[in-house]
Amino acid sequence: MALLSVQNLTKRFHVDHPAAVDGVSFDVQPGEILVLLGPSGCGKTTVLRMIAGFEHADRGSVRFDGQTLTQAGDTPKHVRPEHRNIGFVFQDYALFPHMSVIRNVMYGLHGKRSDRRVRALQALDLVGMTDYAERRPHELSGGQQQRVALARSLGPSPRLILLDEPFSNLDASLRENTRQEMRKLLHEQDMAAILVTHDQEEALSFADRIAVMSAGRIEQVGAPRDVYEQPTSAFAATLLGRVNLLQVNANGCEADSILGRLRLDREVHGPITVAIRPEHILLSDPSEANGVHGTVVSQDYKGHDLTYRIQVDEQIVTVQSDCRTTYPEEASVALRVVADAVVLPAK
C-alpha cells in the first residue's frame, strides 16, 4: 500500500499559459526516497507545494496515509497544510529569526513545554546540533541552518518529508557529505521523502527512485541505475548526465553509425536515435587498434578523469576516459564503443 499516491495532478497558474503541472502521477512507498529531477521551471517545486497543501490543484488528487488530502473536481477537498502532518524543508531553510534554534524545533511540537524541549533536543541530536540549541539562526552557517531546518521538520515525526532543493545553498564541498548523512538519517528513521532538485548527481546518489520531469509532465520513473542506463527519451538521457545522441538506421539488433557498427539493446528497424554514454567509448592510439578515427577537439581535465570532445565525421562525440593515457588536442584517436547503444523511443 503506497504511503503517498498522487494521481493526475494538474495546475494552471494563468489561463493562457500552459499548465505548470500537467497530469502528474506517482506513488511513494513507506520509507522510500523519491527524487523529482528536472530543469528550472519544470513544475517540480509546484508538485511539492501541492502535496504540502500550499497550492490548490485544478485537477487530480493526493492521497496520503489512507486519507485524501487533495481532491479536485465535483466534490473538491483540500486539507489545510497545518493538518497534513507532512514535513517540509525549504530551500532557504525558513528558520524563524526571532526564535532560538531549540525554540524553532519546539515550535513544531505539541504538548507540555518540558516534553517538547526533550523531544526537540532529541531531534537536534539526530542532526548533531544540540550544542547550538540556544543560538539564533543568523549566528549559524548555511550548513548548520540546514540541519536545524531538517531537525525542525523531523521533530513531529512525520511519515513523509518534502525537501525543496535543500542542498543548493551549500558549498560544493559540503554537499556530498551532507547528502550522505541525510540519506542515512532518513533511512534510519524509516522516513519517506520526496526531494526536488535539478542536480543530476544529487538525484542519482540520493534517490531510491527518480522521477524525471519536464514541462509539467513526468517523463520517466525508475531506480537511478535504470533511469541512467535505460533512458526512455532524449530528454531523460541528457538530463542525467552527458550523453551522445546518434541518428542511425537500425536493422534488427545492429545499426551502422559514425562510430562503427553498434549493438542495440533491443530489436528495431528503421531510422532511430540511440544514446551512448561517454564512458562507454574507449580511446586508443589509431595505429594500435581498430575502430573509427577521430580528432581531439578539446579536453576537459578534472583531476579524477578527462572528458574529451572528439570530432568524428561531422559530429562531436563526448568521451569519458581515465587519465592513464592522454591525447592532446588535434591528435588522432581510435574510438570503440563497448556497450549496447540504448534505443530511444520515437517522440
Binding site: 497545518e82 517540509f88 521538520s153
Partner: peptide, 25 residues
Amino acid sequence: PRLEEASRSLGHGRWQTFFQITLPL
C-alpha cells in the same frame, strides 16, 4: 511568506501563525 508556510507545515493554523510568527517579526 516562506516563514508562514514553514509555520503551517509544522501544524500551526493561520491565526496562530499570524500571532506567533508574523506579528512578532
